[in-house]
Amino acid sequence: MIKNTLKDSLQKSIELIDVNLTLKGPSGNVNILHNISLSICEGSSVAIVGPSGSGKTSLLMVMSGIERVTSGNILVNGEDISTMDEDQLSVYRRDNIGIVFQSFHLIPTMTALENIMIPLDFAKIENSYTVANEVINNVGLSHRSHHYPSQLSGGEQQRIALARSFAVRPKILLADEPTGNLDNENSKHIIKLLFSLNKQNMSTLLLVTHNSEIAKHCDRIITIEDGHVLNDIKS
């Protein structure tokens, strides 16, 4: 069955088959994701919406390999990441994935430019310094390249985070509420930048958001509730 699915998934960027995620909590096991099966085509943009605690971020986490599924399979570009070990997952992320977090997660002890250089260095891209400078220029923050995250505003930090995630031209971009910590003005700017960079890169975009306006920018909207896919519609 998996062999057939592998054949089918060639055109698909990501495919989730019967994915379950159960986490152990202080008061027992908590079922986060239930039998989720869905596939996402290469180059498409998908918004994942739903109420708080519905499992949106967890879904993103299992796709990135940060969270290990309890059962089920996740095929990315034909490769099953659910069987990979930690190091294979790191390499998988390095070669395929860019991630943007709501809380930015820039390394506080490195400058904006150095933060962008990290994935380039790990991917062994030559002239990482030059490439990082180009990327930071693309997000309009070249004048802030030697500043530390604590010296940047929230909007600026998220732009650097976006630059970092796009620096290695990932096939898939995962964005977890990238405007959740930003004001309206900055949110608009970031979303505009996100879609524009995505278009340039032709990446597959998965965007977790509460904002229906932002979700409408995507080709497809998947609604999650209590760990189940409630709705899957084209926008």
Binding site: S90, V91, R93, I99, I107, T109, I118, P119, F122, A123
Partner: peptide
């Protein structure tokens, strides 16, 4: 704590455990 946080971020950004 800061080192742990850094290690995790580096892992997310593609660093192997050996690195």
């Amino acid at each position: 704590m800061r080192k742990l946080y850094e290690a995790v971020l580096l892992k997310v950004l593609g660093a192997k455990r050996s690195q």
